[in-house]
Design a protein around this nucleic acid. Sequence first.
DNA 1: GGAATAGTGTCTGTAAGACATTATTAG
DNA 2: CTAATAATGTCTTACAGACACTATTCC
Lengths: 272, 272
Amino acid sequence: MVRLTTVMREEHDEEEYLASYDPRAFPPVAVTVDVVALTIRDGGLHVLLVRRGVPPFQGWWALPGGFVKAGVTVDEDLQHAALRELTEETGESPNRFHLEQLATYGAPDRDPRMRIISVAHLAFAPELPEPRSGGDAAEAAWIPVDSLGLDDGEQLPGAAKRLAFDHAQIISDGVERARSKLEYTPLATAFTGDQFTISELRAVYETVWGERLHTGNFHRKVLSVPGFVESTGEMTESGGPRGGPKARIYRAGDARLLHPALLRPTTEDEVR
Amino acid sequence: MVRLTTVMREEHDEEEYLASYDPRAFPPVAVTVDVVALTIRDGGLHVLLVRRGVPPFQGWWALPGGFVKAGVTVDEDLQHAALRELTEETGESPNRFHLEQLATYGAPDRDPRMRIISVAHLAFAPELPEPRSGGDAAEAAWIPVDSLGLDDGEQLPGAAKRLAFDHAQIISDGVERARSKLEYTPLATAFTGDQFTISELRAVYETVWGERLHTGNFHRKVLSVPGFVESTGEMTESGGPRGGPKARIYRAGDARLLHPALLRPTTEDEVR
DNA sequence: GGAATAGTGTCTGTAAGACATTATTAG
DNA sequence: CTAATAATGTCTTACAGACACTATTCC
């Protein structure tokens, strides 16, 4: 045990010595920041993807992302880098959206070129205009998550789009994180506009969770959680598109956590 | 918006072109893996720390960690790198422990030498022997978390040990993650031996959460959650050190999530 | 014996889910 | 008018927390 510790210490001394005098002496590892940006369009969950114009995976769809900039001119935080990727691709920065770190992916063979470690981020955004792409190969678009044929990170053969690198896994992890976050945070409001009705909020839950919810119980539950939503005092101009009375309009409250939480109906008797 | 997208695409093409032909052309970013290893000793939560023998932060305490190895000879996964750091410092690999990714820290100024991005991991281990340190400057030890004077990631002036880099923040995040994980996973058993009594399991919760729990309700609750623990059919040889009857002995069950969850008593009416 | 503990029983308040009901709007 | 929906009411079941109690063991 002592021996191992000593070996390790010498190893570190060596590396740190090199580090302080010659940064280029490091093993070639690059760091990228990728963003899983989720939004709801046409009643379905969509993810922002870009089509790769160069190898590797040329022509395949991939998450927006880029290398972390380091140096004397630019030296940005990881969160800032993710924000930059997001606003570049969406074209405009939504005034209300959520951005958090998801996880870091660093399997040695995840990029055929070299060792690339990706710090993935997760974003929730309200509906944004389609990112108009130029006429050439590279393009960006909101893609329905359902069309990707994700199954526990593995992309199934019948998928409409082929995903580059391990991005199927990253998207799968991001969606699962989103589903979980809706349970104990008020972040569902990040998918809606600044003002929303309880029905619109319920539609967010139903879309992300992929399940129908009981309208009455959901309504009462949302209003009973302190700080989730607060009434604007206003009502919608008209009723719903298929009938029904005018609805009260709410905005997001000041709670950062939902207590008690809104648990998913089918927790499927926990994973064994 | 189209303009921005085009700019970004060209930028990526450029970087990817360089990447495929000259990895050394990248901005100098290094990647380390740090481990927040938690265990319970003498009724208190402890974290594994090493004392730095070289600048920067020479003589300060830091998390065990090291640079990610990349290259033709060694090319390890992030999880594998974290496992290596953990076993090197603890001297022996516990047969039952938990290791997960915590978060990635990449503030530009977190290391004075260069841009270093740290992928932090979190480990739960049963009580292990003290890592015997050599006689010189560098040493490793289990340090009580309470003695670090952590307060929301900031280390308070009166702390017994000074922590290098942003490791106070990382430990703080790790402890909070641990507290949360005990709520909805059966990972409290990773802190105990292979066999344990309900009282020992309760002691884990009380130590990590820093709160006394109701013995009777905890007992009934643990047994009511499917798959949390299963009885070995055995009893302890003797009663508790301060009296009481012999206790039944349990082992970890096959559940991966607790349903329903064991929520902390003082959820403090959610953070606003 | 006295104190502490394992394990169980009981009661109450809260919350989730199922179901019902009323009022209001679109078509 | 008919269908759909917003919002509220009611009932049942589950569970968390408080409290009580018994049996067992250490000192």
